Amino acid sequence: MKESVLIQNKIRIKINLAFLKKDMVFTISLVLAAVSCLFQSPKIEYLNFPVLISLFNLMLAIKAFEELRILDKFAISILNKCNNSKSVSAFLILLCFFSSMFMTNDVALLTFVPLTLVISRKTKMPMMETIILQTIAANIGSSLTPMGNPQNLFIYSFYRITPMPFFMTVLLLAILGIISLYFFIRRLDEKELKVEIPPIKITNPKKTMVWGMVLILIIASIFGVIPYQVAFIITLMIVAILNRKLLFKIDYLLLITFICFFIFVGNISNTNAVHVLASTSLKDSASVYFNSILLSQFISNVPASILLAEFTPNWKPLLLGVNIGGLGTIIASMASVISYKLYIQSYPNQGKKYLLKFSLYNFSCLAVLTLIPYVILKILKIF
C-alpha cells in the first residue's frame, strides 16, 4: 500500500516538473516572485489591475473571434494576396509595427499573433521567427506615439511633454527599428505558396457584430475613454449570454505569469539597494540612457521608467532608454511574454527553442539600437 502511494506521488512530482519545464517563463516568474518575497513583503498595490483585467477581456474577445472563424477568414484573405512565405511574414510583421502605434504593443500582439498561428496551421509553415519579429516590431513601433505603450504614456504625462519634442526624440529609434526589421525579414526563408483555400463565410454575423463592438469597448477602456471595470462587466455579460465555454478556453497561466512578474518587480523596485543605485548612478544623459536600458532587462521597461523618473529631469535619454530596453530579455517588455505564451500554447514542446531564437534576435537588435543612437546623439552633442 505504501509503495503504491509512493509511486503515485513520484508520478505526480514528475508531471508537475514536466509542466514547469514546458513553460519556462511561467516557472521563472514564479521563482522570481517567491525569492523576492523573502526580502520584501508583497503588496496588493503591485498588481496592475487595469492591465490584468484588460488582458483578460482581450483574451476572451480574441478567443471568441477564433471560435467564430473570423481569424480564419482574415488568414485566408492574407494568403490569397501573397505569393510566398516571406511576403506573408513581412505583412504580419509590419501589421504589428504600425498597429502598435495606436493600439499599444500588447494589444497588437494579442490580436495578430493568433492570426499568425492560424496561418501557420493552414500552410504547415513554421512561423516562430515571424512571431519573434512581430514582437520586436510591436515593441519598436509602439515607441513612436505616447499611447503606444505604458512607459511612453507615463513619461509623456510625468514630464508634461508636448507632441513635437516627443516625436522628434523617438523618430530616430523608429527609423532604425524599421531598417533592422527589413534586414531581418530579408533573412527569412522564401517558399512559394500553393494554397487554394475556399473563402470562409461568416455563419453568425450577429455574434460577430456583437464581439466586434465588445472589442471596440475593450480598446476604448485601454485608452481610458471608458472605465476598465465597465468593459470587464460588459465582456462577462456577453460571454454569459453568448458562449460561457470561452471562460474555460483562455490561458489563465498568462495572467498568473503577469501577476508573478508584478510581485517581483514591485518587491525589487521598493528595495533600498535599487533606490540607492538609481540615485547615485544617474549623473548625466548618458548614464540615464544606459541605466534605463540595463534596468529594463531585469525589472521590465515600465517599472524602470517609473523608478528612474523620480531621480532625473532628463526625459529624452530616459524615453529612448526604456523603449530600447524593451528589447533583450523576455521580461524586458511584458508584451514579449504575451507572444511567447501564445506560441507555446500551440507548440508546447518548443519553449526552449523559442527562447533561444528570441534571445538571439532581440539581443542583436538591442546592441544595434543601443549603440547607433548613442553615437549619433553624441556627435550632435545631445549626450
Rank of each mutant, 00 (worst) to 15 (best):
N349E: 12
A137D: 05
A286T: 15
E129F: 12
P348I: 09
I222T: 11
K10G: 13
S77T: 15
A335R: 07
S143R: 06
L255Y: 07
P163Y: 13
T27M: 07
L153W: 09
G224D: 08
N9T: 15
Y289K: 01
R12W: 09
R12S: 14
R187L: 05
K283E: 07
N270Y: 07
I293M: 01
S36L: 06
K378V: 08
A304M: 00
K353D: 12
V239E: 02
I178D: 02
A33R: 03
I200Y: 14
I382L: 14
L60S: 09
Q8F: 10
S4N: 15
T123Q: 11
Y354Q: 04
G325W: 01
L30R: 05
V302N: 02
I233D: 07
P313Y: 10
I185P: 03
N243P: 05
N314K: 15
S296R: 01
K21A: 11
T130S: 10
L327F: 05
P198A: 10
M24C: 13
S36Q: 06
I299D: 00
L79T: 12
T135A: 11
I131P: 01
L356R: 15
L295C: 00
L253F: 12
I175M: 08
A90Q: 06
L153C: 09
V88T: 10
S87C: 13
T257C: 10
L282H: 08
A138S: 15
E67A: 11
I338Q: 02
I331V: 14
F167K: 07
K206A: 11
I13A: 15
F26Y: 07
I219S: 05
I62N: 00
Y347C: 04
V239G: 06
F158W: 08
N149I: 06
E129I: 07
L181C: 07
P199R: 12
V88K: 08
P198K: 09
L71Q: 09
L6W: 14
L356H: 08
N152G: 10
E3Y: 15
V337A: 04
I306Y: 03
A231F: 11
A240F: 06
T208D: 04
T257N: 08
Q8Y: 10
Y340Q: 02
N83S: 15
I234E: 06
L117A: 07
L217K: 09
V35S: 09
S87W: 02
I13G: 13
L94Y: 12
S346P: 00
Q350H: 12
N314E: 14
L371K: 02
P165Y: 07
G148I: 00
I263P: 14
L52G: 14
I241V: 13
I140E: 04
F184C: 08
S85A: 11
T329Y: 02
F112V: 05
N301S: 03
M209A: 14
F358Y: 11
A33H: 05
L318P: 04
G148A: 03
N9D: 15
I263M: 14
L356M: 13
M209Y: 12
L171I: 01
F74K: 11
Y182T: 08
S89W: 01
I78N: 13
G212D: 07
S120P: 08
K14L: 09
T257A: 04
N301C: 02
G351R: 02
N48Y: 09
L17S: 09
E129S: 14
K194Q: 05
L188R: 03
D251Q: 10
